[in-house]
Amino acid sequence: MKLINKNANRRSFLKAGLFLAGGAAATTLLKPYNAIAVVPEEPKGEKPWYGIGIDIDKCIGCGSCAKSCKIENDVPMEPFFFRSWVEQYTILNDGSVKVESPNGGLDGFTQSVPDKDVFKSFFVPKMCNHCSKSPCTQVCPVGATFESPEGVVLIDEKYCIGCRYCIQACPYGCRYLHPKKKVADKCTLCYHRIKKGMQPACFANCPTGARIFGDLHDKKSELVRFLKDHTCMVLKPHMNTGAKLFYNSLSAEVR
């Protein structure tokens, strides 16, 4: 009897195991092109739902985006307050990675490593990812930061108590405490511009068209086309932030 029981247990264990494996395989087959954790869940409705595309292949690191952002949004000019900045990644022949961002790229870049030591080098413009499952809005104790119906993560300056919790929570380091207003501050995707039908300042001032702004709902928009034509990736996909900033040609070294 004992022997039969043992076999039955083994059989049911294998059965359950196969069900689980089959279930997992089926879920991946349902969405064959989507890594489940990476793609943000799209809200229903007619309203626009904005996203961002950045083509690292086209970025020449001129810093126009960082500069125009500071001017457009009255961001303090000191070198440690940024809503949008550029980093130069240099991977050396010995495998080490050097990341530079002198003054956020505001004054341009100079190559600091001689050509012969460089394995590859590229610029990565950074800004708020406008996550659909953003950690920063979830931690706000007073409801001062929120996601607008258009999918833009904003801060209500009048409600913010300056507790800095959101600055800690953002995995991309996109928030800072405004030195004068003493409230958290971040990229608004130039909400005042996009509401008037204009492009955000950093997009309008990119000389090479490396930045693409668009509506993820509109399947004919430039951004959706960009996502179709390129192999895009978000930063830190394992954190499941639902980031809506998609990079083309993103190297694994970028953090």
Binding site: S68, I71, E72, G143, A144, T145, F146, E147, S148, P149, L154, D156, E157, K158, Y159, T188, Y191, H192, R193, K195, K196, M198, A201, A204, N205
Partner: peptide, 19 residues
């Protein structure tokens, strides 16, 4: 609209453009 002050949307949208 959610767990935030809806008037904040208009306040932010009302900022002046520079470019």
């Amino acid at each position: 609209y959610g767990h935030y002050r809806a008037f904040a949307l208009n306040e932010i949208a009302g900022k002046k453009i520079k470019y």
